[in-house]
Design a protein around this nucleic acid. Structure first.
Lengths: 208, 208, 208, 208
DNA sequence: TATGAATGAGTCTTCATTCAT
DNA sequence: CATGAATGAAGACTCATTCAT
C-alpha cells in the first residue's frame, strides 16, 4: 500500500537485544506465527517479523530463504505441535464423544493459548504461492485425526460426516477472530462450548 | 499526453461485455466482493479488481475514492443483502429451531451462491484501517439477528449463548474456505448440515 | 502525489451553477490564475481549476486544448493587463523616480489586488514545458518597461542597472508570498514601501 | 523476486562516483536541495532526486521516510548553514549598513554558490503539507537575524521595517531565478548590488 | 551470524486527457 | 457546450530480497 501513514525515524529500527543462538530461529517462527495469524500472510511484512524477533530484516534470510518458506515452517511446526497436543489429549479417553470433546479442547487451547505456535488455519489454497500443496497436505493430514474421531461417532443418518468435520473445524478455527483472553470464557471453556454445540448431531443422547 | 489506446473507433458495434453506466459500479463491487472473500483485503490488488471488472485500475477511482471505501461498500451491500435474505427466510416460520435453520441456510446460500454479494465476514478488527469501526458496527448489527434467534432457543443450562452464536457463525463463515460448487453437497445442503450439527445443544430432543 | 488525503464522495463534484457563455472562458482564466499563483503550476490540478470555474474537468478542454495552453493564456492575459495598468499609471508622470514609483505601485496593485489576473511571474524557464520560450518572451517584453524606466534614473556609477531591475522585480514579485490582505499595509502601501526602499530608505547618507 | 541487476560482481574495483555510507545522505540532501530550488517541491519527483543522487527511487526511503521529510531536512540544513554563514560574516562588522551588506552578500553567496545547501526559501505556506509550521518557524527564526540588523538601521520615518525586510529578502531570494553563474556578475556582486539598491542607489536625492 | 544499504518490481492513488452522448 | 466515464502514465511509497562487510 502506498499510504504514508506516519513518520518513521529510520527504516530498520534497532531492535532490543535478545538472546541469540538457536533460539533465534524459534523466536522468528514464534513471531511470524503470531503475526501471520493476526494480520494474514500478505498483511505481515518481513520487517515486522524481524522487529518482533529482535533482528534486522536482512538477518532473517540467514535462517529462512524466503517469506514463503517461513510460512511453511510456521505451518508445519504449528501443525506438529497441535497434533502432539491433540493426540496426547485423547490418548486415555475411549468414549467417542468424550474423545472428540478432548480433541476440540486441545485444538482450541493451542490455537488460542498465546503459545508460540498459532497456526494459520485459513486454508492456503487461495494464496498464489508455489508450494501450497505441501501446506495443504500437512493440514489435511492433521485434520484426518478429526475425521477418524468423527467416524467413530454415532451420528444421525442424514448427517454428512464430511460437512460435519469441516463445519466443526470452522467453528474451532474461527475462534481466533473473536476470542479475547481475559473475557468471561477461558480458552478451555471455548473448546467445551464448541463440543457441547457439536454434540447435537448424535443419533441418540443419554437421558439425563 | 494520455492517449486512450484501448478504445476502438468502430461505428455501431457496442461494447459487449463491458456495459457502462451504473452497472459498472455493481460490477466493481461484485468483483471486489469475490476477490476480497477469496484472497483477503491486502491480498487483493486494485488492478486485479479492475481487471475483473473490465476496466483499468485508474477507472476504479471514478467510482470509489479508495480501496478502503470499496471495502466498506462491499461490506455494507453484502450485509444488507444478507439481512434481507435472512429476514425473508424466517418471516413465515415460527418454531424456534426451524427459524434458526432457515436463517443458517439463507446465510450460507448468499455467502456461497456466487451471487454478486459475498460478504467478507472475517472480523476486520485486524485490519489497520481507519474506518473499521463502521464495519464492525454493521456486522454486529447483522449478527444480532442470530442472537435473537438463539435467545428463543431452548438450550441446555450450561450452554453459553454468546459462544454458541459465534461458534455457529464460525462454522457458517468458514464454509467459504472449503465449499466448492459442483461437489456432492449443494449450497443449501451445507446450510442444512450446519443446522443439523448445531441443533445438538437443545435441552431436550424428541425421541424418534 | 500518492497521498490519500481525505475521503471524497465522488470524483467530479457537481459544481454550483454559474453563468455560461463567453464568461466561462474568463472565469476559467481567472480561477487558473489564482490557483497557479497560489499553488504553482504542478501543484494545481485541472480538476481544481474546473471546480473553481463551475464546470467539470472535461469541459475545460472545450476552451483550452491543454493545461499548458491554459498557463500560456493566463500568463499572456496577466501580462497584458499588467502592462496596461502600468503604462496608464506612468502616463502623466514625468519625473523619473516618480515614474518608477507609480509603475511599482501599479505592478503590485494588480499582482496583489485579488483581481482576476494574477501573474505567475516565477520565471518559467524551469518548467520543462515545450512552449516556454513564448512565455519568456512575453515576460521579457513586459519587464522592458521597467528597464526603460530605470534607464532614465540617475544612478550611482557602481550600480548595475541590470541587477537593479531584477532585484527590484524580485522584491515586487515576492510580495505574493508574504502579503496578506487585511493586514496593516494596503496593497498600495506595499508598492510605496518598495519604491521607498529602492530609492534609498536611509535616513541620511554621508556626503561623499 | 527482487534480484539486483545493477550491481556488478567485479572483484576489487570500488564503485567510483557513488560512495556509500553517510555520504549518501548528504548527496541526497544536496540533490534534493538543488531540485527543489529549481523546480519546486511538487515539480520534483522522487525518482529525479534519486537519479541525481546515484541511487534508485526505493533507496531514498532508507534514508528518509518521506518526500516531505526530505524537504524538512533540506530546509533545516540549508537554514542552519545560512545562519552560520551570515553570522560569521557580520561578526566583526559594527557599522549597521555595513553589517547588513555583509549579511546580504553571505545570504546570496550560499544561496547561489552551488553549494550543497540551496534553500527553498519560497514560503511554504502554500504547500498543503502537514508539517509546514515547522518549516515556517525555522525560516522565521532565520529571518529574525535580518530583522535585528534592520532594527539597527537609521531609516526614514515613513519606512516600514517589516515591509523593508520582506522586500529585501524577496530581492535576495528571487536571485535564484535569474542569476546564472559565469555571467558578468559574480555571486558576490549580486549581493553587493542588492545591498547598494536597498541602501539607496540614487545618485543624489533632493534635499528635503 | 548479523547488519546496513541498496534494489526494483509492485502498490495505491492522482491526474491530464479523451470522447460518446 | 457540457458531462460522465474512462484511460494510462506517472507519482509516492512499500517490501521481499540481496550482499559486501
Amino acid at each position: 500500500m502506498a499510504k504514508p501513514k506516519g513518520r518513521k525515524k529510520g527504516s530498520d529500527e534497532k531492535p532490543k537485544l535478545l538472546r541469540r543462538g538457536p533460539d533465534r530461529r524459534r523466536q522468528i517462527v514464534a513471531a511470524a506465527s503470531q503475526l501471520f495469524a493476526r494480520k494474514g500472510f500478505e498483511g505481515t511484512s518481513i520487517r515486522e517479523i524481524a522487529a518482533a524477533s529482535g533482528v534486522l530484516s536482512g538477518s532473517l534470510y540467514y535462517h529462512f530463504p524466503s517469506k514463503e518458506d517461513l510460512l511453511f515452517t510456521v505451518h508445519q511446526e504449528s501443525l506438529t505441535a497441535m497434533r502432539r497436543e491433540v493426540e496426547a489429549a485423547i490418548a486415555d479417553v475411549t468414549e467417542p464423544w468424550a474423545r472428540l470433546e478432548e480433541a476440540i479442547v486441545a485444538h482450541c487451547r493451542i490455537l488460542l493459548g498465546g503459545s508460540v505456535t498459532r497456526a494459520i488455519l485459513t486454508p492456503p489454497r487461495y494464496y498464489n504461492l508455489q508450494g501450497v500443496r505441501k501446506l495443504v497436505r500437512q493440514r489435511d493430514e492433521y485434520e484426518r485425526i478429526f475425521a477418524r474421531l468423527i467416524d467413530d461417532l454415532p451420528l444421525k443418518a442424514d448427517c454428512d460426516r464430511h460437512a460435519f468435520r469441516l463445519s466443526m473445524l470452522g467453528a474451532m478455527n474461527w475462534t481466533v477472530f473473536w476470542f479475547s483472553a481475559g473475557g468471561r470464557l477461558s480458552v478451555d471453556d471455548v473448546g467445551r462450548q464448541i463440543a457441547l454445540m457439536v454434540r447435537g448431531a448424535a443419533l441418540e443422547r443419554p437421558r439425563k
